[in-house]
């Protein structure tokens, strides 16, 4: 994707993005999200676009925002054109693109679910069409036992066989395992990173899939953003929001990022239905999520069933659009889980 960056996105970058070009972020006084939202709201009310700030005679326009943000600060930020050009150049060299919320390729799910709170910028690499593909969000702890990872790989593989995408956070453990399972089986995946996109696009785990358009990696933060736990937490909601259905594979009880993300999803955001794995040994974390409204993962036996479940069109699925008789009795009617060997053969057809 080498299309020119739209004026709206240019202005958004200039006003809110660090545009880091070295190991250290510059000390520019960027608009904080609440400040930017206020500016955005007035721009919308006055029938302008944020890109109008870049017009040749934009000074009077900018000065009219002086009560929200001092005009001198706006002028300084908008004067960062050379830095912007440099940052765009560095990103483009590594095939990293950037989308603003008004760009056509910006994922509609984020716009729908978050409205004015949608991340104003998304940085990404790979096939941007995949941002509209939805699919199954798979989340889980970084440190899992071998059995859990094997199970996760199989979920990824089945998603691929069912033509469902895997959405994940791209962290070690469950996240990467699920994506790899799908990608190795010829499926697609969308990874939502919180940091170091600039370095991660060089990872051999991703490289070939980015090249052949079956993977997209995105981040709401500057490509050179360094790791912070809090940023990892903030990106969880985008993993859920970009999917159709979520599956929590493993989580601690009331601790860790997976728990926080699932808890937030179940109790506050409610963007997509949430399932939990039913592990051989009971898991206090997953059981607690069930009590918060998560459903046990029903182990769909065929690609068709899997796809229906993920796309919320299965009879009895929590958000199924047409469910005249489903509610309540679906679990009783669900077929007994077939032996693993049979499952596998059905998915391999």
């Amino acid at each position: 994707m080498t299309t020119a960056v739209s004026p709206d996105t240019q202005a958004t970058l200039l006003l809110t993005a660090p545009l880091t070009t070295t190991a250290k972020a510059p000390a520019d006084s960027l608009l904080k999200p609440p400040e930017f939202r206020k500016v955005q709201a007035r721009v919308a009310d006055s029938g302008h676009a944020i890109g109008d700030f870049l017009g040749r005679d934009a000074s009077p326009l900018i000065d009219a925002y002086d009560d929200l943000v001092p005009a001198s600060r706006l002028h300084d930020l908008l004067g960062r054109g050379f830095r912007l050009a440099q940052a765009l150049d560095q990103w483009a060299a590594r095939s990293i693109w950037v989308l603003g919320v008004t760009d056509e390729a910006y994922p509609s799910r984020l716009r729908t679910h978050f409205g004015n709170d949608a991340p104003p910028l998304l940085y990404g690499c790979g096939n941007p069409d995949l941002l509209e593909a939805g699919g199954l969000a798979v989340v889980g702890s970084r440190d899992c036992d071998e059995d859990t990872l094997a199970w996760t790989t199989e979920v990824g593989r089945r998603a691929a066989r069912s033509r469902c995408q895997i959405v994940s956070g791209g962290a070690r453990g469950v996240d990467i395992t699920a994506m790899a399972g799908a990608l190795d089986a010829g499926g697609t995946a969308c990874g939502v990173l919180s940091d170091t996109l600039f370095r991660d696009v060089l990872d051999v785990t991703y490289r070939d899939y980015l090249q052949n358009d079956t993977l997209v990696l995105i981040s709401p933060n500057d490509p050179r953003q360094r790791f912070f736990t809090s940023l990892r937490m903030q990106r969880n909601k985008y993993v859920y929001a970009l999917s159709d259905t979520a599956l929590v594979v493993a989580t601690g009880l009331k601790q860790g990022g997976t728990w926080a993300g699932a808890d937030e999803q179940l109790r506050r955001l409610r963007h997509v239905p949430v399932y939990v794995r039913v592990p051989p040994q009971p898991s206090p974390g997953l059981s607690a999520l069930e009590r918060l409204g998560a459903h046990p993962w029903p182990e769909p036996a065929t690609p068709v069933e899997f796809a229906r479940l993920v796309r919320n069109t299965a009879p009895g699925s929590p958000n199924a659009p047409e469910t005249p008789t489903a509610s309540g009795n679906a679990p009783d009617e669900a077929p007994a889980t077939p032996p693993a060997a049979v499952q596998r053969s059905l998915f391999d057809l």
């Binding site: 960056v5 240019q10 040749r56 050379f82 050009a85 150049d89």
Partner: peptide, 14 residues
Amino acid sequence: RQVERLLRRLPAQS
């Protein structure tokens, strides 16, 4: 080549 790309990416008002 790099100069060219920087110029292409420089916002119009610079």
